[in-house]
Write a protein that binds this DNA or RNA. Structure first.
Length: 329
RNA sequence: GGGUCGGUAACUCCAGCGGCGAGGAGGGCGGACUGUAAAUCCGUUACACGAGAAACACCGAAGGUUCGAGUCCUUCCCGGCCCA
């Protein structure tokens, strides 16, 4: 896909605008405003908004809010289906190709940093599809022999990863072992290679943020609204149609906790408090992720008097970068 | 006024048989992350002192018992509940 895109751009790197930030800062609104200004289409970089029927809990953008801007990768899967970075990367690449083919600028907007990274750096996840049987087998082994012993298995084949991944993090130990079994080489070496990569795009990486207290206050308020606006009903419907906690979609914050309530494991108030708390933790993890990313442009909400001022500032940067040329009046 | 239960490292809640320079959980803060990422995991959380057979601080406060007290006793202060 890169080749085709390069051709369209006369050999120059294709443009890509990224808008991200912690949950509830106002990414969606900003991305729509920017998209309208520069004639862009939006690709959602969100691991949960891909699922149909999960609208309230994911704070999914509504058709009205899209304001005529075309959005991609929203409502493309059923909640029963698994989803992961590789699938996202494939779909996002295709969307980018199409958008550029239409002569528009792709805007990758959403809060899943890992997904953004996979697209921006065109990370190679190589090999075949997920081998669920191997993964399950490894998970069972871990459960049987214990975290420490399981971690020792990794130490034998990939000592470097064993140092980097704590024994407690079984999920990542599983993946490291899985990689080794499949490819015969340590994942640490592979990651090392991938880390050297340069972005394949002429990109701008915006991180919209705000003061911590404001973000937290907004989260609390938004969760209350979700409950009022029917999140319990939304989750109940998903549960009725057979969704269980084991599904990736049900790992979403708001869904797990309400599911617990529906199963009688806690009160609605407790579930609600946990949703708020875990969303705050999530926001903090997102910020940690973005701080680590190279070449990001931080946009502090308090530095802008209005949404319009923010968008103008962003477009200025796009012009400087040669991503967007304002039309002559 | 009487009774009763409680006041713990300092943001919150709680553990703590007379050997505690006091533990846990939550929250907060920081970090990791390359096929589950809204996942998963790690660290840290009073001030001062300072690595020494050596001390300041230390469980509401003050006394007492004891070789030794967060732990037992007395009084006081504060809070909850019950009775008047």
């Amino acid at each position: 896909m890169t080749d085709a895109v390069l051709e369209k751009n006369n050999g120059r790197k294709p443009p890509l605008v990224i808008i991200t930030g912690p949950t509830a800062v106002g990414k969606s609104a900003a991305s729509v405003l920017l998209a309208k200004r520069i004639g862009a289409e939006i690709i959602s970089a969100d691991s949960m908004q891909v699922y149909r029927g999960m609208d309230i809990g994911t704070a999914k953008i509504t058709p009205e809010e899209m304001a005529g801007v075309r959005h991609h990768l929203i409502d493309v899967l059923e909640p029963e289906e698994p989803f992961d970075v590789v699938r996202f990367q494939t779909l996002a690449r295709e969307a980018i190709r199409q958008i550029i083919g239409r002569g528009k600028i792709p805007v990758l907007a959403g809060g899943t940093g890992f997904y953004i990274q996979a697209v921006l750096y065109d990370i190679d996840f190589s090999e075949e599809e997920t081998d669920h049987s191997l993964r399950r087998e490894l998970e069972e082994t871990a459960a049987r022999i214990g975290k420490e012993a399981f971690h020792d298995l990794l130490k034998e084949v990939d000592p470097e990863s064993a140092i980097a991944i704590p024994a407690g993090n079984v999920k990542r130990v599983v993946r490291a072992l899985e990689y080794y079994r499949k490819n015969g080489k340590p994942i640490s070496a592979h990651n090392q290679e991938q880390r050297q990569k340069e972005s394949v795009y002429n990109s701008v990486y915006f991180v919209l943020t705000d003061e911590r207290e404001k973000i937290y206050a907004r989260i609390d308020q938004r969760v209350d609204e979700m409950i009022r606006n029917g999140l319990p009903e939304e989750v109940a419907a998903l549960r009725e149609r057979g969704c269980t906690k084991e599904m990736i979609s049900m790992q979403g914050i708001g869904y797990r906790q309400i599911l617990d309530w529906l199963d009688g494991e806690c009160t609605l108030e407790e579930a609600c408090e946990r949703v708020k708390k875990e969303t705050r933790h999530f926001a903090k993890r997102q910020l940690t992720w973005f701080r680590r990313e190279k070449d990001v442009i931080w946009l502090e909400k308090k530095d802008f008097a209005s949404p319009d001022a923010l968008i103008s500032h962003m477009t200025e940067i796009l012009v400087q970068k040669g991503i967007w040329v304002p039309e002559q009046a």
